[in-house]
Computed example of a mutant assay.
Amino acid sequence: MAMGIASSGSSRRGRARRRAAMADINVTPLVDVMLVLLIIFMVTAPLLTSGVPIDLPDSRANPLDQTPDQVTMSIDRDGFIFVDDSRVPAGQLPAVLGRFGCETADAPLITLRADRALDYGRVMAVMGELNRAGCRSISLVTNGSAEAP
């Protein structure tokens, strides 16, 4: 019986030592949370590029790379022009385009988003003003389409 008491006492001391010696941090929950946040940011980042609601036309064109020095111009269904998210007052487009510095060597890439319900002439008028201001690098933004027209 004395042996049984001594052996149970030593096993308690052994368990106490093991608990006190554990200094590891379980990083699995941290990694799980970080991966979920990464996925959320990857899904929402493309949606934050422009806040102007536009029904874009469909196209099978290949996507272009995003560049940090690009300017997004949008023309909504009513024909109002937006540079990034700020509306351009009527008649002020040439003055706004003059600030882009399109005639310099490091001119920004202009991405033009236009609603599919717009008149073709309205889109061409804006592109003509871009051309007149010296902006020669213009990309037209569309939705991806799965089938050929």
Rank of each mutant, 00 (worst) to 15 (best):
D65E: 13
S50Y: 07
T104K: 05
A117H: 04
N26R: 10
R99G: 05
L97N: 00
P53M: 06
P94W: 01
A148G: 13
A90C: 04
E147A: 15
M73K: 11
D119T: 13
G9E: 07
T142F: 08
M127G: 00
D85Y: 03
A21N: 14
I25D: 04
R13Q: 07
V43N: 09
D115G: 05
S74I: 05
A107V: 05
L56M: 01
R60Y: 06
R136T: 13
T44W: 15
V123A: 02
Y120H: 11
N143Q: 09
D84S: 08
N26G: 05
S137W: 06
D32G: 13
V43L: 15
P149W: 03
C102K: 01
D119G: 14
L109D: 04
S137M: 10
T111M: 12
Q70H: 08
R87M: 10
C135S: 00
D78G: 07
D78V: 11
I40Q: 13
A148H: 15
V52N: 02
S145N: 10
L112W: 10
F100G: 04
V88S: 08
R99L: 11
M73R: 04
L112I: 09
S59I: 05
I5M: 06
G4K: 09
V27G: 05
V31M: 11
T142D: 05
V31L: 15
T44H: 12
I25H: 10
D55E: 14
L118K: 10
L97M: 10
R15L: 13
M73Y: 13
D78R: 10
Q70D: 12
L97D: 03
P149F: 03
L30S: 06
M73W: 12
M127A: 11
G101M: 04
D69T: 12
R18D: 14
F82I: 04
S8L: 11
T44I: 14
G14L: 14
L118W: 10
D84W: 02
L93Q: 03
V96P: 02
P63E: 09
A133L: 01
P68Y: 09
V33N: 08
R87Q: 07
T67D: 09
R136E: 12
L140S: 00
D85N: 15
P94L: 01
L56W: 01
G9M: 06
R13S: 06
S8M: 05
D32H: 15
M22Y: 15
A90T: 12
I81H: 08
N62H: 09
V126D: 08
G101D: 05
I25S: 11
V88N: 07
L30G: 07
M73L: 15
G128D: 04
T28G: 02
I40F: 15
E103K: 07
P63S: 10
D58Y: 07
V141L: 10
G51V: 02
F100N: 06
R132V: 01
A148P: 05
R12V: 03
E103T: 13
G134T: 03
A107S: 13
L93Y: 02
A107I: 04
A105D: 01
F100S: 03
P63K: 11
R12E: 01
S7F: 09
L30W: 14
R136F: 09
I110F: 08
R136M: 11
R132F: 02
L37Y: 09
M3Y: 14
S74C: 04
S86L: 12
V96K: 06
Q70C: 02
R77Y: 01
F82S: 08
A20S: 14
F100H: 05
V33D: 12
M34L: 15
